[in-house]
Design a protein around this nucleic acid. Structure first.
Lengths: 211, 211
DNA sequence: TTTAGTATGTGATCTTTGTTACAAAGCCTG
DNA sequence: CAGGCTTTGTAACAAAGATCACATACTAAA
């Protein structure tokens, strides 16, 4: 099962020999939606590759206030975690399963070995850093340049994409946590978006109309 | 001169053979304070290593509004640029010399070659990605979790550190651009900080008291 | 030394977002 | 179906920041 999912997600990227190595040294980890995969301050002893599902990456300040940074999907890895592995430092972020997900966990020492042995691995690592930097820029644009209603709209679009349809299962309070605002503000803006015909509201779920 | 500055800034990090290679294939570039080194949309054909001086990295939205991301100092490289080089994409950021600065420009093909040849180079590249990700997290924390007065205070502290003293040459308008707010807001908050005894204000310059 | 340009100080007002408070609706369980 | 919990709706008010308007101060060039 690990092998099949691994090939599905990564055969375009990794050479055969590396895929064999991953199957040999990686271990499958299955997490249910909502479970925390890595928390802030955790020492990270292995690096996850996402086989199936989705993960949301969160930042937290000293008062416990959260902020969603971005989502990871199949074929992604968490560059933050990667950076922690290589730097032997604690995790700066929290990773929570957005859906039921399957990961392969790669031990750090293998990671380092593969970095010298496989060009495709090196490229993958660089590529991961690159996408994560780009996502972070996007996050910064969003919080620095957009108003809450636009941020909310983007959030709903992202969520819809990950769930592969327009029906999102989420409460206003959860959205408020992710966007680092209050439930009241979210409810207000959602109602406005509903009146504008952009979304439909039901208890515990939102239907996104025009993406 | 390139060689001396290179050794001063990088001899702890790079092995002798690599230092020689850099001297051979890198070219020195000198920029005056205020000059733009890389702009948004530029194709980057070589990667800069900072020898001396300081650079500020800015993000811009569609309306031309700016936001300071972070500063780079001696021994740093711009991981964003690096990512662009490796990904062969356009620059997502603007880099402006904060002081008069000296850079070595490394041609892309050498960069790629060194990645396989020198372990110290690989580590440097990973390390750069790591620090830049960390800086970006810091930036996100700042804009997401802090009020303008706290952001302003941090900004002044960073500036003071870079200029190696507490006297900062800057106008309120420039600060407003960097923090993506208005001059009026900056003036008001600066005045408040002055009344609190934290800074002293003169035309075109600010004295930071308690760091 | 006058003048024009640049930089700063500050009041007044508006918009956006945050906070508090409470009502009503939906849902689950005994 | 009654009571309790969760979720949503909304009014009223507070706070931060943005915008406009204008006065004043400093500086450099004519």
């Amino acid at each position: 099962m690990l092998e099949k999912e691994l090939r599905d997600a990564y055969h375009f990227i990794f050479e055969e020999e590396l895929l064999v190595e991953i199957t040999k040294f990686g271990t499958l980890r299955e997490v249910k939606a909502g479970e925390t995969i890595i928390d802030i301050g955790d020492y990270v002893k292995s690096m996850p590759l996402l086989l199936e599902g989705a993960i949301k990456i969160l930042r937290e300040d000293k008062d416990g206030d959260e902020l969603l940074l971005y989502f990871l999907e199949r074929g992604d890895t968490c560059a933050m975690t990667l950076a922690c592995c290589l730097g032997h430092t604690k995790s700066e972020i929290r990773a929570v399963a957005e859906k039921d997900t399957h990961l392969v966990m790669i031990p750090i020492d293998k990671m380092e070995e593969w970095t010298s042995r496989f060009k495709s691995w090196r490229n993958f690592v660089f590529e991961s850093y690159h996408s994560r930097l780009t996502e972070m820029l996007d996050t910064i644009d969003t919080i620095a340049f957009l108003n809450m209603d636009e941020r909310l709209m983007r959030y709903l679009q992202d969520k819809a994409k990950i769930n592969k349809n327009e029906q999102i299962q989420v409460t206003h309070q959860e959205i408020a946590y992710d966007l680092h605002t209050s439930r009241v503000v979210v409810s207000r803006l959602l109602k406005k978006l509903e009146i504008e015909g952009k979304i439909g509201l039901q208890r515990n779920s939102i239907m996104v109309h025009d993406l």
